[in-house]
Amino acid sequence: MVVPSPAAKAAGLCRDLHKQLPEKVDGRGRTDPGPKSDLTAGWGDPAIILRCGVERPPEMLDPDVAKSDGVKVNGVAWLLQKRDDGSYVFTTGLRLAYVEVTLPKERTGDGLGPLTDFAAPIKKTIPKGVA
């Protein structure tokens, strides 16, 4: 897995988020991927993967895509992108660091459920704004 390399301010926010992440997501225990980093986390097998400090997806700059493929879960806005392998990638918008969550194809049947577990820690540690 590729560990993001954000600017210092975003990296600090991501470290704060890492400390607040839940032990379980969607009922699955923590299984952090390698290499170990405060910018990545995982749950279950196949794992739901969180990466903090990723680059802004280019689709966020397209207002038509951002509106049509945007979802809000418990006060956190996400851009939704479906990959060719059947997995989904969600990236936070309007926050001072971009957080990406990948749901493997095997976990997509749970809908947006896993994102609810990330809402409180993201709202607590990543302030609203534009990164």
Score class of each variant (00 low, 15 high):
113 G>E: 12
122 I>N: 00
69 D>Y: 09
71 V>L: 05
29 G>Y: 12
113 G>V: 10
23 E>M: 13
16 D>K: 14
126 I>Q: 08
73 V>T: 01
15 R>A: 14
68 S>P: 00
7 A>Y: 10
98 Y>E: 05
102 T>M: 10
107 R>T: 04
112 L>S: 03
102 T>Q: 15
11 A>L: 02
131 A>N: 12
41 A>L: 03
72 K>S: 12
19 K>M: 09
130 V>Y: 13
61 L>V: 04
5 S>F: 12
126 I>A: 10
47 A>H: 04
13 L>R: 15
118 F>Y: 05
17 L>G: 03
131 A>G: 12
71 V>F: 11
47 A>N: 07
70 G>M: 09
104 P>L: 06
92 T>C: 03
117 D>M: 03
58 P>T: 12
7 A>F: 07
93 G>W: 01
7 A>N: 14
114 P>E: 00
18 H>W: 11
93 G>V: 08
103 L>G: 04
66 A>F: 09
103 L>I: 01
47 A>S: 14
127 P>G: 08
60 M>K: 13
34 G>P: 02
47 A>W: 07
72 K>G: 10
109 G>M: 00
24 K>Y: 11
59 E>S: 09
61 L>W: 11
65 V>W: 09
55 E>A: 09
111 G>N: 06
67 K>A: 09
93 G>H: 03
16 D>L: 12
14 C>L: 11
57 P>R: 04
80 L>W: 12
117 D>T: 01
96 L>T: 11
21 L>N: 11
94 L>H: 13
80 L>K: 15
47 A>T: 06
125 T>F: 01
8 A>L: 13
60 M>Q: 15
126 I>M: 07
121 P>I: 01
3 V>G: 06
34 G>C: 07
20 Q>I: 04
97 A>Q: 12
112 L>R: 02
74 N>T: 11
24 K>V: 14
5 S>G: 06
118 F>W: 02
85 D>I: 10
12 G>A: 14
4 P>H: 13
126 I>V: 15
88 Y>M: 07
98 Y>Q: 02
36 K>P: 11
14 C>S: 03
79 L>R: 08
30 R>W: 09
64 D>P: 04
131 A>M: 08
110 D>F: 05
23 E>K: 15
80 L>T: 15
82 K>P: 05
24 K>C: 10
4 P>T: 10
31 T>N: 15
42 G>E: 10
7 A>L: 14
37 S>W: 09
80 L>I: 10
58 P>R: 13
105 K>P: 02
112 L>K: 02
16 D>A: 12
92 T>L: 03
87 S>D: 05
117 D>L: 00
31 T>Y: 06
97 A>G: 04
105 K>V: 01
89 V>H: 00
13 L>V: 00
15 R>C: 03
